[in-house]
Design a protein around this nucleic acid. Structure first.
Lengths: 133, 133
DNA sequence: CTCTGTGCAAAGCGTTTGCAAACGA
DNA sequence: TCGTTTGCAAACGCTTTGCACAGAG
C-alpha cells in the first residue's frame, strides 16, 4: 500500500489501479493535460476510457487531491496539490515549471488598494525555457 | 467616427455596428464572458448570432485589440487590451477588478532561478471583494 | 457480498465552419 | 460594385451522463 492509496482512502475513494496510475503519472510528469494523460494511461490500460479519466480527474479535484492550472493560449494542465507556488510556461515547447515565490508583498499591495480579502494568487509567467531560447 | 472605428480600420477590419457594440460593451463593463456579452448584445441586435460574437472575439484577439483572461474555476472573461496589469476576482459575486502592480522583482527572481526568458506575467488573485466580505 | 468504479455508447454543450444574403467602403 | 461580414444551420470536439458489468473492500 503506497502513499497515494492512503490519500485516496482518506477521501473515501477506492484505490483502483486507474486512479493510482493517474496519481503516478501526475507525480512523474509534474504537469499533464487530459490528452497526454490519456495517452500515457493507454500504455498501461489498453481499454481505459476517457470517461474514466474525466470522472477521476473531477473527483480528485473536488477532493483537493489535484489541481487544474489554467494557462494562457493553451489547454489546462493538472498537477498534484502541493504548497502554493507559481508557474512558468514555455511558449515554444509547452514545458511547465514550478517556482516558489513570496507574493506576500504584492498581495498586500493589491489587498490594500482594492479592499479585497485575498486568499489565493495564481501567477503564470510565459516566455522561453532555457532550451528554447 | 469614434475611437473604436479608427482602431478597427487600422487593423483592416470593417467597423460594423456589431463590432462597435462589442468594443463598447467591453469598454463599459470592463470584463465580460461570452454569455454575458451575447445577452448584452441581444438588447441592441435582436437577431445577432453567437457565431458572430465568436468570430469577432477571435478576430479581435488575433489583432491584439482585446484579450482573454483565464480565471480559476470559472469561464474566461474578455477585456480591451491596455497596459499590463493583474486581476482580482471575487469568489462570491464574480466581480473582476484590475490592478497595476510592479512584478519586476518577482519576475527577476523567477527568471534567475529557472533561466526562463520571461516576457509576460499573468496574475489573478482570488478572494472576496469589499461588498462580499 | 455490497457498493463503488469502469468502459462503452449516447447525449450535451460550447465553439467553429460553410454558405447565401446583407452590408460597409 | 466588390470583398467582407452577418446569421443561420450543421458540424465539431471536448466533456458528461446512463447503464450493465467488473472489481475493491
Amino acid at each position: 500500500m503506497n502513499n497515494f492509496t492512503d490519500i485516496l482512502r482518506a477521501h473515501h475513494l477506492k484505490a483502483t489501479p486507474q486512479r493510482l496510475e493517474i496519481a503516478n503519472t501526475l507525480y512523474s510528469h509534474g504537469h499533464v493535460n487530459i490528452e497526454d494523460l490519456y495517452e500515457t494511461m493507454l500504455k498501461k490500460f489498453n481499454s481505459i476510457s476517457l470517461a474514466t479519466i474525466y470522472k477521476n480527474i473531477n473527483l480528485m479535484i473536488e477532493n483537493a487531491f489535484i489541481q487544474e492550472v489554467k494557462i494562457p493560449n493553451t489547454k489546462s494542465v493538472y498537477e498534484l496539490t502541493k504548497e502554493a507556488h507559481s508557474h512558468l510556461v514555455c511558449d515554444n515547447c509547452g514545458h511547465v515549471e514550478d517556482i516558489s515565490l513570496d507574493l506576500s508583498a504584492v498581495s498586500a499591495l493589491a489587498s490594500h488598494s482594492t479592499e479585497f480579502e485575498i486568499n489565493k494568487a495564481d501567477l503564470v509567467f510565459s516566455g522561453l525555457c532555457k532550451k528554447c531560447q
